[in-house]
Computed example of a mutant assay.
Amino acid sequence: MTKVKWAVDASHSSVEFSVKHMMFATVKGAFNSYEANIEADPTDLTTANIEFNIDLASVDTRNEDRDNHLRSADFFDVENTPKLTFKATNIVKKDEGEYDVTGDLNLHGVTKSETFTVTFDGQGTNPWGVEVVGFTAEGKIKRSDYGLTWNAALETGGVLVGDQIKIALHIEASKAE
């Protein structure tokens, strides 16, 4: 197959994250608004062009006060840095259908190289005759690398919010026309 453009189906996709809370619990959240520019042969991602943009104001942790705090200058500062962006710079095949996708991740005005494991989950034709593919991307970043350092010390030792953020994208995309 040759390289084609793919349109992310937001109703069948998700952008999720998790972080340690109080050193032992895990809090999960999602971003509900994002867009991608994907041009790829899904059976060989090594030549793909991948760009991803996340609207940070769309953060949803199922707690309005926490979401508003995440939007504030203590964390994302969405008024001044409204998007997280990722642009792939190198894609290496690790195994059948599994790739290391390295790219420039920009968050909070800081750009760093990050690598995500991307798995091609399959492809088929939906009931309306449209070709559809599925991908999963997973990785970890340190929020402190991006200047996201707000925290609170706990009486029992440790901190309220962990530094390592786990990121998981579950993407369904259809062939763009």
Rank of each mutant, 00 (worst) to 15 (best):
K112Y: 07
E16I: 05
F86R: 00
D145G: 06
L160D: 00
T115K: 06
D65Q: 12
D100V: 09
D74F: 09
D121V: 12
D95V: 11
A173C: 04
K20L: 14
D44P: 03
E114H: 09
T102D: 06
S13L: 09
I165H: 01
V78N: 07
P42Y: 05
T156I: 06
E64T: 12
A36S: 09
S14W: 04
L84I: 01
V132M: 08
N151T: 00
Y34M: 10
F75W: 09
I171V: 11
D163I: 02
V92E: 14
W150I: 03
E172A: 03
M1P: 15
H108W: 02
A40H: 05
P127G: 02
S72Y: 06
Y99C: 08
T61E: 06
G157A: 05
V78E: 03
F24P: 07
W128I: 14
D65K: 13
A48K: 00
F120L: 05
K93N: 12
L45S: 03
L84G: 06
F52Y: 11
K3I: 14
N63S: 03
A30D: 07
E172R: 02
E172S: 07
G139L: 06
F24W: 13
V133Y: 07
D163R: 00
G158Q: 01
V130S: 13
A73D: 11
A73W: 05
E16C: 09
S33C: 02
D44M: 04
E39L: 02
